[in-house]
């Protein structure tokens, strides 16, 4: 009886020591920020961000590759937490309110053509000292024109929802989220 207890205890001690040693000796140094980031993510591993799971997404953010607003399940709160950890300024959640395009407040426009030069897709029309305007259908919402405007008359506005841009939504039944 006593031998059995002793031998099993001995085996357990040896295994424990061995494991403890291995954990210290063979530990792989991980970026502590990745751990922090992963903790702030919902750990749903849903793949909505385009990465295989929350850990790879955290990795990608830590190495500077990925934007911090790709996690729809986490929402704005998660994005802000991530921003705090990474020391970057919070950015808008994607598709939070829908796509936006530039809009020139024409009463304030002085016609300096600075935005026309900045626009990569030539979506702004107007001439020198004439009020400018944005061709909404062409604007890609890149915001390149907002900064150069000397009088801050360019706003990013939501694309208005019309009958013609409207789409059927995906059925939101209980079962739709299963599988």
């Amino acid at each position: 009886m006593i031998e059995a207890v002793l031998s099993v205890s001995g085996l357990a001690l040896v295994a424990g020591l061995g494991l403890g040693f291995a954990a210290r000796k063979f530990q792989i140094e991980a970026n502590p920020i990745v751990d922090k980031l992963e903790q702030s993510l919902p750990s749903a591993n849903c793949g909505n961000c385009g990465f295989p799971g929350c850990r790879p997404y955290a990795d990608a953010m830590a190495s500077g590759g990925a934007p911090i607003n790709l996690c729809p399940p986490g929402g704005k709160a998660t994005m802000e937490a991530l921003a705090a950890i990474l020391g970057v300024s919070p950015v808008a959640m994607e598709e939070e309110e829908g796509p936006k395009v530039a809009f020139v407040v024409e009463e304030n426009c002085i016609g300096c053509t600075a935005c026309i030069k900045a626009c990569p897709v030539d979506a702004i029309i107007g001439a020198n000292k004439q009020s400018h305007t944005v061709v909404t259908d062409i604007c890609i919402g890149c915001k390149a024109c907002v900064e150069p405007c000397p009088v801050d008359c360019i706003e990013m506005r939501l694309v208005p929802k019309t009958l013609y841009s409207w789409s059927w939504a995906k059925p939101g039944g209980e079962h739709a989220t299963l599988h």
Binding site: V121, I138, I140, S167
Partner: peptide, 27 residues
Amino acid sequence: RFGKFAIRNRDQEKKKQEISRARTLAK
């Protein structure tokens, strides 16, 4: 209906991207 609209929107989006690319190159 959702599927039909999703396909239509995707195709439109693709078209818009192509137009944007062409306009950028032209500029």
